[in-house]
Design a binder for these strands. Structure first.
Lengths: 263, 263
DNA sequence: GAGTGGTCTAGACCACCAC
DNA sequence: TGGTGGTCTAGACCACTCT
């Protein structure tokens, strides 16, 4: 037997509001009011049918609504639970500052360690591709020009949180460790600087959307978690775009922080 | 009769993949492959039942999946349509630069005009409140300290795209037009500068999530559209936080662009 | 009025989980 | 083994849109 005390009211069948929405409303109030906390189990479908005197499909619609809103997560054979909010990680706008490369760490690893999280990289894939128009316009490459593509997945404490693909002109990447899985101390940014390109500025374009099915799978996202798409373009002192990085980040795992001068 | 030619394959009932997912897969492929374009009508439920030989609830589940993914939008009595992607607006990181205030325009209005969109503000509400901890830690106010709150909704070409609430210490706002609906030329930022506070820098904290029901309603968001939450803190030359602005932006209507020096 | 999606019922069988 | 959610059927009545 479970906590049905959270359901105080009955349904008003004469209301304009659909029965399944009224049930969803009550459950939502229980969650938002703190009577049901993250990780706690909602009443089972059978209990809700009994309590409200409705058919199973009706209570399932109510639960589906909460799942769509990202408030609840179903686990087959166990029950439906109030979603836990994972701790978000704050990414400061100086995360690519050169000093963070001094001790030989790539940006993601350095940031993660700063907050005491263990980080890993997997699914590293290096190839040569003709990039999409979105990337091409930023790299300023020709319509059929091939560039080096490095994709990888980042994990924090064992959980995947970010997919990233870097695009680097072949003239910079060829003959360097950028073409290898292990790029050496400081990551690809250090290798680009080795080639005589000093970074001057970065431009980050941030958008948000729901993940594709593939992204959801690779990031283990539960339904209702949006992603950030962040496209970063790195420019050197000559104003040349030396790298474009296309990133998909789990929306519930990051907070992006930017500092802007008022000039 | 409608375009059923998009549905080439039949269902494999022996597959591990649920029938409704297989139907969703085919519709999704038609959309992503461009055979069904934005605004076009999907086959009706009756047609899908007939075509696949399944019950109505099964085709409804398939359509529900596409709606959850944000690919399709249902219109009662008309049909289900491939979602149109609204044009996104790029917000440059210099959007609060002082020169944009010189001609008397507030930031949002100036940006919108730059891309030829007509903009409006409504639902302006000025009050005094004790802010939430999130706001308080940024404004550095005491636990019971009251601040001035200004909330409003921004519209672009008649469509709501952004909800914003500014919090300003009473010492700055009292006795100024910040307390009135119409804050005068240049908006509240110009009024804060009138009070002798020169802006030095801003910090923007960006997160993403699905909207609450209230936000979805005020922004006319269809299911499957996430929002940006952007909390901007404005600091003056003395390092004092003079305003915190808590913003909810329709995720399909904005692209945030930030420029970071490599220092 | 014909066609559309929205809501709801009352069943069925299955797969997964914990005990 | 019993309880859970996942899938599916075959109906019903309703509200909305278009003509």
């Amino acid at each position: 037997m479970v906590n049905e005390g959270i359901l105080v009211n009955q349904i008003d069948p004469t209301s304009d509001r659909a029965v399944f929405r009224q049930i969803a409303d009550q459950l939502r109030q229980a969650i938002e009011g703190g009577r049901l906390r993250g990780g706690e189990k909602l009443p089972s479908e059978a209990e809700l049918m009994e309590h409200y005197g409705v058919a199973r499909m009706t209570v399932r619609q109510a639960i589906q609504e909460l799942r769509n809103e990202g408030l609840a997560v179903a686990e087959h054979g166990r029950g439906v639970f109030v979603r836990r909010r994972p701790p978000v990680k704050r990414l400061a706008s100086d995360r690519f500052a050169r000093r963070h490369r001094k001790d030989g760490k790539a940006a993601f690893l350095a940031e993660s360690e700063a907050v005491g999280a263990k980080s890993d990289v997997d699914r590293i894939l290096v190839s040569e591709v003709v990039p999409s128009p979105e990337i091409r316009e930023r790299l300023r490459t020709g319509p059929d020009e091939v560039v080096v593509s490095r994709s990888r997945r980042y994990l924090r404490d064992g959980h995947p949180v970010e997919l990233a693909t870097s695009y680097i002109p072949v003239g910079i990447a060829h003959g360097t460790k950028i073409m290898e899985s292990n790029t050496g101390p400081g990551g690809i940014y250090a290798r680009i600087e080795d080639q005589g390109h000093t970074f001057e500025r970065y431009v980050e374009d941030v958008s948000t959307r729901l993940p594709t099915r593939e992204e959801a799978k690779l990031l283990s996202l539960t339904s209702g978690t949006p992603v950030f798409r962040l496209i970063r373009t790195a420019y050197d002192l000559d104003g040349m775009a030396v790298e474009v990085c296309d990133t998909i980040m789990a929306g519930d795992a990051f907070l992006l922080s930017y500092e802007l001068p008022a000039h």
